[in-house]
Amino acid sequence: MTFYEISNSKLLYGLVIIGLLYILGFAAIFLKRSYKRCVELGIDRSTVNDVIKSSLAFTLVPSIAIVIGFFSLSAVMGIPWPWWRLSVLGSVGYELMAADLASKGMSYANVAAMAEANDPQVFSVIMIVMTIGILGGFLVLLPFGKKMTTGLMAAREKKDSTWGIVMSSCFMLTLASVFLPVMIFGDAVSAATLFTSALITLLMTLLIKQFKIHWLSNFVLAVTLLLSMIASVGWQALLG
């Protein structure tokens, strides 16, 4: 079996569908019990129903962006695995980063080159790495979630707790501090694509503010990703 055959195998489809049905059931039980809880606490059913309607309406648009991310990932990693990853635990940005880091760690130029090698063991490595890498949060949430939800808010309200907010931001700032120079100084096409992406986001943000087309905000990530990927093909022809 090759990378492509395993990544679209019936067994993987089956395992993913079973897992998704489990998560769907988990969410449905949460919905039912929390709805009942709201009513018990004296919140009007109409208010709870409005929250559900509003949540569904809000979810619809960002979900389309997730589907576009799924289309991108499935081009190199088959259908079931990105379906699973983007439905459970992941997000488009994280999955792309994880796949890219893992492929580079295994000495491939990028995810596409890794898939091109068609090595079944590489697909297993990617699945294992993407799974373990994203589980870090649960190391804290499972043992401490209950204590945190009943006590952490009070701690954050203390004056000196602003350090917690600053420290939390350090992870994302460090991520940017490493990837920006690597992309800018490492490869001309990467740099051009990066700047194209930033420019598209900036232009869309200005358009949204100028013409007050707020619904477009939900599409910024998806449109930027698609247009910048298309632009990268042009940049490869020019600079590659």
Partner: peptide, 15 residues
Amino acid sequence: KSATSYMLPALFGGM
């Protein structure tokens, strides 16, 4: 396939 090679910078610029 060519476009997917540069997914990460395509996402990161905006992100």
